[in-house]
Design a protein around this nucleic acid. Sequence first.
DNA 1: TTGTCGGCCGATCGCCGACAA
DNA 2: TTGTCGGCGATCGGCCGACAA
Lengths: 221, 221
Amino acid sequence: VDRDVWLACAVPLSRLPVVGAEVYYFPHGHAEQCPEHLPAPLPTPHIFPCVVTAISLGADDKTNEVFAQISLKPGPHRGPAAPAPDADPTNPQQQQLSYFAKQLTQSDANNGGGFSVPRYCADHIFPKLDFEADPPVQNLLMRDPKAKHWQFRHIYRGTPRRHLLTTGWSKFVNAKLLVAGDTVVFMRRPDGELLIGLRRAPRYPVVPKLDAAQQQPPPRN
Amino acid sequence: VDRDVWLACAVPLSRLPVVGAEVYYFPHGHAEQCPEHLPAPLPTPHIFPCVVTAISLGADDKTNEVFAQISLKPGPHRGPAAPAPDADPTNPQQQQLSYFAKQLTQSDANNGGGFSVPRYCADHIFPKLDFEADPPVQNLLMRDPKAKHWQFRHIYRGTPRRHLLTTGWSKFVNAKLLVAGDTVVFMRRPDGELLIGLRRAPRYPVVPKLDAAQQQPPPRN
DNA sequence: TTGTCGGCCGATCGCCGACAA
DNA sequence: TTGTCGGCGATCGGCCGACAA
């Protein structure tokens, strides 16, 4: 996966260290992301100084959720004299990728198969619509991190007028198993190519399924 | 998987050797069943004398297709004096399981979600319908080799009258990924419990997918 | 006896503007 | 500006008898 695409899809707080960086391994944070990987009673002390030995960026084959595999070698740090990896301006291309992220509402994920496009995204990421047409409409072709292509109908309609993705959207939602709370990321490359990525919302620990007889009916609103 | 259920679901030509039996390993036959397991140029000679060291019967977790894992030890046979394993009458219970197998037609697999029940199967495997009712109808509950239960609506209707499985059938077809040519096996235990199994039709070698632009439109009839 | 077909009805999907937050 | 809703038309799934092989 391209580094700039990966960064756009990763949660905003994510920062990638560089190989050789001196970091602290923090088991509690690891367990929060991957509860199934670690035993429940976490060891003490709770942080371990480590050196990053390798990084590989990837995306899940089925869901396209991006992840980073960061290899660590435990060992004492050489001290604060080491260069600060975050200050390293190694990635000028990152500036070139403009993107917009939106957390899916209930309506985006469940209802009628449409997606409300925020104005900023339509104006700054998507190609301009022909507003002479009635209604203004175009088809958008986007590539996901695994190079699979998705087509969406982008229309500007309704009273008051708003941008929507209609045909093609629900297919994407179902294929990626998206739910309200997940986030989609629309990206535009300098050459105009559109990309689509996603950030999976944190999933709560899986609870064992109840028998049908024990299940509560869904709350009525 | 129970031996009798396995035998009912296996293709009629299948016979299971017993441990210790002296058999011939025939690479060409192995390649026909599992084309991906063996290298293309098959070795000569084409048969190898072996002794069966272990047998385990199983069913695929997703599709329920039954298979047998037969461990072989290459080595010369001790000669024709060894007992003929097929003559060994070790399985009186097998007589107790009555079953009926039907290869799926196009209509069974594709159309309107129904299944034409051959008369023999309705008469000898399924519970008797109440022909006083109009129409005669009942729900059948069946267990597959992985102990999952499936319910089917069994109705006797149409002109001329015939037995059909309707509601529940297409769910089964989709879940098991059945296509025309596959075979379903209905079984009745002595205690009356109904079982359902399947035999997957031989699949032809997978050809690489063509690009959309190269694909032929489906033939019109 | 049973495989295939067209009819048809109900459920679901998904596009739409209305309206309010 | 945009989230949610009800309406509603199109599509699809699937039950039906007709008919012929």
